[in-house]
Amino acid sequence: MNSVLVAYASCVLVLFVKMLALSCYQGFYRLRQLAFVNPEDAAVFGRQAGVQELPQVQRAAQAWANDLENIPLFFALGGLCVAVQTPGAATVWLCGGFTLARVLHSVAYLRAWQPWRTLAYAAGLACLLGMAGLLTGGILQGVGG
């Protein structure tokens, strides 16, 4: 199997695990404090539904929402980089850099660490822009070649 594809697939897997961990983080706090906003969930534990989510659950939901704005772009750009066969080393570095940035972004979000959250976001965005640049070069080369 192509080493760039292996790197991309590994990054997709890490991002999946990271997003799953955010979901588990939310569940942990809900169960730990038996605090649920959905009446059917609260009823299972003989509790009344809360008016709002716990702060930890809200932060994880915000991190999740931010992931949903960024990670699909990575899936598309990274997959296209693999398909177009952009330069291997650059593609691997950009995929790995994006993945690391998103993991750090989630940690910083949960811990309310600024400016680290913004820096991690910016690093991930820079990697996406780099992948878009590689794709542009690969497409132009294919059109001209």
Rank of each mutant, 00 (worst) to 15 (best):
A49E: 14
A108M: 09
G50R: 15
G50P: 04
G145W: 04
A21D: 04
V57M: 08
V103Y: 04
L134G: 01
C127L: 04
L140V: 13
E53T: 12
L15N: 05
P115M: 14
A9D: 04
R30Q: 03
L140C: 13
R32M: 06
Q56Y: 00
W113E: 09
V82T: 06
C24E: 10
H105T: 01
A21S: 11
M19W: 03
G88E: 14
C81S: 11
Q114N: 10
V57S: 05
L15A: 08
A63C: 12
S10N: 11
R117A: 04
R111F: 00
A21T: 15
L94V: 03
V84C: 05
P115E: 12
S23P: 06
R111H: 13
L100R: 04
A132L: 08
W116D: 06
A42M: 07
L129R: 03
N38R: 12
A63Q: 03
L5Y: 13
Q52W: 10
R30A: 02
G79Y: 01
Q56W: 01
R111T: 02
Q85E: 12
G79F: 04
V51I: 15
L104T: 14
V17A: 15
S3H: 12
V37H: 10
I139Q: 12
A132M: 08
R111A: 15
L134Q: 07
R117K: 08
G145F: 01
A112Q: 14
T86M: 02
T86P: 09
L140H: 11
A60H: 03
M1T: 15
L20H: 08
A108L: 09
V103M: 11
S106A: 15
N66V: 13
V103F: 05
G133E: 02
Y25K: 01
L20R: 13
G142K: 11
V103I: 09
A65S: 13
N2G: 11
L135W: 00
Q56E: 15
A60Q: 03
E40H: 13
A63T: 05
W116G: 11
D67K: 01
G79W: 03
E40I: 15
A126R: 00
A112F: 07
P39H: 10
F45V: 12
